[in-house]
Simulated scan of single mutants.
Amino acid sequence: MTTASPAASELPDLDLEAIRETARANAQALLRTPVAPLHGPTIERLLGRADVHMKLELFQRTGTFKARGALNVARRLSSEQKARGITAMSAGNHAVAAAFAAREAGVSAKIVVQASANPARVAMARAYGAELLIAPDGATGFAMAEALVRDEGRTFIHPFEGEGTSLGTATVGLEFAEQVPGLDTVLVAVGGGGLGSGVATAIRKLMPGCRVIGIEPEGADVMRRSFEAGSPQRMEKLSTIADSLAPPMTTPMAYGLCRRHMERIVTVSDDEICRAMAVMFRDAKLAVEPAGATALAALLGPLREELRGQRTGLIVCGANLDAETYARQLARGEQLLEA
């Protein structure tokens, strides 16, 4: 049975001054990532002379936006919580971010990582000083993290849920609005909604006339299903190359902020993501993971005609991928471009 959508006033929200304070508090440990126009012969062939601006979060500390939320949560820990350390559960990128955040906050980190996690991300998390525990699957991994909270008193840093996380990712939107005022539409990749919740909130508060559209992989469209149902949902089967956009569920705050501030969710196929990766490599000289190309995939695919002539912003959210996997996905994208 479909749950009725809550009224806008019932959904969670973030205060703009709290977003600004978060940016100030974390400024020394994080980077104000650059913005660059996307131009080149391939883009012109596909879109014409489009006015597209990329927010380059792949250059953030740890290689993705996730450092912003994880650090903001770690920074807020009490002295007692810091003494006991943190834990997290991740398929890769969040493990790296949580390890970095723990190091910056001066606390210990014992993090559970799925066995399927990309080896490059596992190596990065270890390099930041975290102790890693390997779980055979996500459900077992969350149970292991819960045991660390119960038995060792560690604080769990969630990959996408919570005010601290959304305030951290909202600083991406804050910076983008300051760097490129007057955007018509911002496209942002959505997994659990940690990034989208913050970006959409900041963009809509600072540029009320700008639309924010969330982009999900077709095979992991749990946020789209949540929008349709009017409440957080769960998926039993996920299938996408964008593994960092494939959580099995949405959660109340991340869903609520996305629902309040995003216009809608649009889905893209793995082929469209690979094609976008190839375009980014050709024209922007950027080697991004699939999640980092997902926003562009929507601009080149399902939103191509709708956004023609608009000033469009893309959040390029990350680039943590091993060379072998990247080469395989890039080759797939190049073949699709030439087809």
Rank of each mutant, 00 (worst) to 15 (best):
L174F: 09
L174G: 01
F176Y: 02
A177I: 00
A177E: 03
E178M: 14
V180Q: 08
V180R: 08
V180P: 00
V180Y: 04
V180T: 09
P181A: 00
P181K: 00
G182M: 05
G182V: 08
L183W: 09
D184C: 08
V186G: 04
V186A: 10
V186S: 00
V186R: 09
L187E: 08
V188W: 08
A189L: 00
A189Q: 15
V190E: 07
G191K: 11
G191V: 13
G193Q: 03
G193V: 06
G194Y: 05
G194W: 07
L195G: 08
L195M: 12
G196S: 14
G196Y: 01
S197V: 03
S197R: 11
G198T: 10
V199M: 05
T201D: 01
A202N: 11
A202H: 12
A202Q: 11
I203L: 14
R204I: 00
R204W: 09
K205G: 05
K205Y: 13
L206P: 00
M207W: 09
C210Q: 08
R211F: 09
R211D: 15
R211I: 06
R211P: 04
V212T: 13
P217H: 11
E218S: 13
E218P: 04
G219K: 02
M223W: 04
S226F: 00
S226A: 12
F227D: 02
F227V: 01
F227Y: 03
A229G: 02
G230C: 10
G230V: 11
G230W: 09
S231F: 15
S231M: 14
P232Y: 06
P232Q: 12
Q233D: 05
R234A: 14
R234L: 12
M235D: 11
E236V: 01
E236F: 06
K237W: 03
K237Q: 15
L238T: 12
S239T: 11
T240Q: 03
T240V: 06
T240L: 01
I241K: 10
I241C: 11
A242Q: 01
D243R: 12
L245Y: 03
P247R: 02
P248Q: 09
P248Y: 06
M249D: 12
M249S: 15
T250S: 12
T250N: 10
T251N: 11
T251E: 13
T251R: 14
P252F: 08
P252M: 10
P252N: 12
M253N: 14
M253S: 13
M253W: 14
M253A: 11
A254I: 02
Y255E: 07
L257E: 01
C258E: 01
C258T: 13
C258F: 03
C258M: 15
R259I: 03
R259G: 03
R259Y: 09
R259T: 04
R259L: 12
R260L: 13
R260E: 09
R260W: 10
M262A: 11
M262V: 07
R264T: 12
I265D: 02
I265P: 04
I265A: 05
V266N: 04
V266A: 01
T267C: 14
T267M: 05
V268F: 01
V268C: 06
V268A: 03
S269K: 03
S269I: 07
D270M: 11
D270K: 10
D270V: 12
D270C: 06
D271H: 08
I273G: 07
C274V: 06
C274W: 01
C274Y: 05
C274E: 08
C274I: 07
A276L: 12
M277R: 00
M277Y: 00
A278H: 07
V279F: 08
V279I: 07
M280W: 10
